[in-house]
Design a protein around this nucleic acid. Structure first.
Lengths: 254, 254
DNA sequence: CATTCGCGTTCGACAATGCTAAACGCTATC
DNA sequence: GATAGCGTTTAGCATTGTCGAACGCGAATG
């Protein structure tokens, strides 16, 4: 396998480093974190700055992410075909279900939220598009891990942090859950990721029957569940939505 | 001035190229568009792909932007101080004004929207965070061009496209408008960018009295205007909001 | 008030790095 | 079944980016 361009790899590592740290980082911090000479790191950072990918606070001299990333990230959404198809159906799902709807795709060791419809009431909600969700403790993540082999191996390799008392972290137990999900065609999350929050999700397939994403609804366990299980009409609505989006994706060919 | 890292510059150009074209691009397209040998372009693209910045359609072999950009773009928003301060005040502005609220910063030759509060009714609206607005035909753009010297020179150099019959494109005329804006402390857009849409915006200053962004409201001209001018109470509300955010930004010092 | 420390930045020389051009395998097309 | 175009790989050269050290500056320190 051919080697990668060193400078570009390092530039990407810097961007990821800046995205991870919750405050601005100095040049020395960045250089030492990546094991580079200060001059090397400075050259890459200067270029990234000229391109708008990082910005430098004139006072402290520290670096942070740049505005161009937001512009490009939005462009990613504009091009995203799965998201475009999902837009049509998710509004209806949110309205009929009365809960927030999320659409996610596999990205690295988690689920990247590419679409989010607010719960249809007047409460204050923050948009979670661009956020990541864990694979092992969310409905979106588990349904992806069950239906997408790549996601499955990512789940196996990832460290599965217990977020609540109900989070399943044991691998054998999780495999059994994933098998059930494969059989039933949907996944649930009963307070496994956040206390008091439940979710259902179903897989979205492309024209080759490969799972390319998932759609699900999330809400307070009191509203979403009945007798300790997700309400059947919500499950049906989510699966219908997933099927509709899958059909739209597949219809591009024929 | 020291030179920039060639590979990183080229990688950035590729991302911008992919963001511009509204469909996926082939390797040959990218290479010829940037004047590179195919192998050179391929090496950079392969690296960007491994880092998650671009994705390749397995069937056509074409390239598009990758999910990592969305993640990083969201991280940019999380860190953004101006946006964080604005979050508190813009909800109130949207509610009291009854219209959509936008917060923008200068980016290249336009205004990048970093925050957007929906108009408080049940109509279907799409989030415009990450989108760009022109400098010469929007309230956000004009108020930035009037108060930020950098934005001003960008406006002078940019080509000022006429979007409606009321768009001001002549430079002398525009300079006079900007002078008025400076004097009054706010800018309006009366159907200069979209037919039937009017807007008001006011500048946001940091602790050094430098304009770092702008906040404004946008809506149908019938609701926003009265007798051919923006309703005074809306102007006052926008200016109050801008002042509040500015005070929050400056309060770090005193 | 002089000193020192740490910061971001610049400089210059070496060689490792990534670039160029040509050839490869592949699929789709006529 | 020949051809044209695609994305990909290979090999060798020199351009390119890297490194270590030194610079200027501001803030903390004695």
């Amino acid at each position: 396998m051919a080697r990668n361009i060193q400078s570009v790899e390092r530039a990407a590592a810097m961007l990821r480093l800046l995205a991870g740290g919750d405050r601005r980082l100095g040049l020395s911090d960045i250089a030492s974190a990546l094991g580079l000479a200060k001059a090397t790191a400075h050259g890459i950072l200067r270029t990234l700055q000229n391109e708008g990918f990082v910005e430098q606070d004139p006072e402290s001299g520290r670096y942070q992410l740049g505005a161009e990333l937001l512009r490009l990230g939005t462009s990613y959404l504009d091009i995203h075909e799965l998201r475009a198809r999902a837009l049509v159906w998710t509004d209806d799902l949110a309205r009929s279900g009365g809960e927030a709807v999320y659409v996610g795709v596999l990205h690295q060791q988690g689920v990247l939220v590419v679409h989010h419809v607010f719960r249809p009431d007047d409460s204050r909600q923050v948009l979670e598009v661009g956020a990541m969700q864990p694979l092992h403790s969310t409905a979106l993540g588990k349904v992806l891990a069950a239906c997408d082999p790549v996601a499955h191996s990512e789940l196996v390799e990832a460290k599965r942090e217990p977020f609540t008392a109900r989070t399943v972290t044991d691998l054998d137990e999780l495999e059994q859950v994933l098998g059930d999900i494969r059989d039933r065609g949907y996944a649930t999350d009963l307070e496994e990721n956040w206390e008091g929050v439940a979710a259902v999700a179903a897989p979205i397939f492309d024209r080759h029957r490969l799972a390319v994403g998932a759609v699900g609804i999330t809400g307070a366990v009191e509203r979403v569940c009945l007798d300790g299980a997700v309400r059947p009409e919500l499950i049906a609505a989510v699966r219908d939505c997933a099927r509709s989006v899958s059909r739209d994706l597949g219809s591009g060919r024929f």
